[in-house]
């Protein structure tokens, strides 16, 4: 298992937004969901998630509210705002193009100049 893909800042933002499309989640849930979905292939430091979340809130892409977790503890839940939804759509498109283009290059067969 290649459990060692470092996640870059911009990518983490996108992944968080994507995660929040399902439902409102607190930080731990978000990481948990991401880890399970990727079979723990991504390496995301727990501490790094929170500045990302707060930054997304500051940009108006997510909103937060205090609520109760599954085991009745006070937790801060994040929801996607309409602006967040739009940002995710745009970033996903760019990401897809990036993957396609890079993929094309990496999979191209060498042409014989002769």
């Amino acid at each position: 298992m290649a459990a060692d893909i470092d996640v870059l800042q911009g990518t983490l933002d996108m992944l968080v937004l994507k995660t929040l499309t399902w439902r409102a989640m607190h930080g731990y849930d978000i990481l948990d969901w991401l880890r399970r979905t990727t079979d723990h292939a991504l390496r995301i430091e727990d501490a790094a998630l929170y500045p990302a979340l707060h930054r997304l809130e500051a940009r108006g892409l997510v909103e937060s509210e205090w609520g109760l977790s599954a085991n009745n503890r006070k937790a801060r839940f994040y929801t996607l705002t309409p602006a967040g939804r739009r940002a995710l759509k745009a970033e996903a498109k760019v990401w897809q193009r990036y993957v396609d283009v890079v993929g094309k290059v990496m999979t191209a067969a060498q042409e014989d100049p002769a």
Binding site: E45, D46, A47, A48, Y50, P51, H54, R55, A58
Partner: peptide
């Protein structure tokens, strides 16, 4: 978890600006 103090400081700074 990683560097909790640094993360907290960063979050507070972001919140203050917000």
């Amino acid at each position: 978890f990683g560097d909790a103090a640094a993360a907290a400081a960063l979050c507070r700074e972001i919140d203050r600006q917000l």
